[in-house]
Design a protein around this nucleic acid. Sequence first.
DNA 1: GCGACAATATACATTATTTTATTATGAATA
DNA 2: TATTCATAATAAAATAATGTATATTGTCGC
Lengths: 111, 111
Amino acid sequence: MNNVIENPTLMANAEALRQNARDASQMLKAMSHPDRLMLLCQLADGAERSVSELEELTDLHQPSLSQQIGVLRREGLIEGRRDGKHMFYRVADARALAILQTLYEQFCGAP
Amino acid sequence: MNNVIENPTLMANAEALRQNARDASQMLKAMSHPDRLMLLCQLADGAERSVSELEELTDLHQPSLSQQIGVLRREGLIEGRRDGKHMFYRVADARALAILQTLYEQFCGAP
DNA sequence: GCGACAATATACATTATTTTATTATGAATA
DNA sequence: TATTCATAATAAAATAATGTATATTGTCGC
């Protein structure tokens, strides 16, 4: 009788956990691309960067870069602001920022 | 002259950053799958779980479950130990554990 | 040790879906 | 008109989902 399947409370929790896992995995998926992660890293300090600045890091064609930026934007990870001819982007999701910080500690931390 | 492209130190840092981003994105990719993330969540406390236990959470066919476990194993995120007929898995990468903890805080934390 | 069963892993094939690169074009602003 | 950025369209490539079959390893009863 102590079975997860037969316990409605645990069932609900399991379902909530599953939903959280779906949300989280969707965000991770958006981040789990080398170029997109590089872009996010440039924004990980919370500051804004223009597309031109971001372009310097990746060696992507301009449309590809714009496309990757579009993915991050549609997933709500970043938001843009226009200033004259330039677009400035920043990380717009606190959860993403927290993950980026952990990634920095774990992958770029001191040896 | 204050150009990133022409500064060898920054160049080296950029290349190191790129490599870190590649490493990190590879790990994120392994985690960015709802079923695999659910599996990892079950192991996020550092404890071991048998495949049978893990199976209760996902509604995957056995071969599919085994395949996802295989992905995590090949990426080095988990390691297994055999005990009789059962295999017990645990998270085998401290970086993954740190990320999982952050995910828990951000996606399962109190409102 | 042998046969039967249980738990897990692997192999493979198939189909569907995603991702990526490329080229071209469009819109906003200076 | 030149810059900066975004979008569209599309073809190629990679990845994922699913199902079936089979292999491996171990247990237990004999």
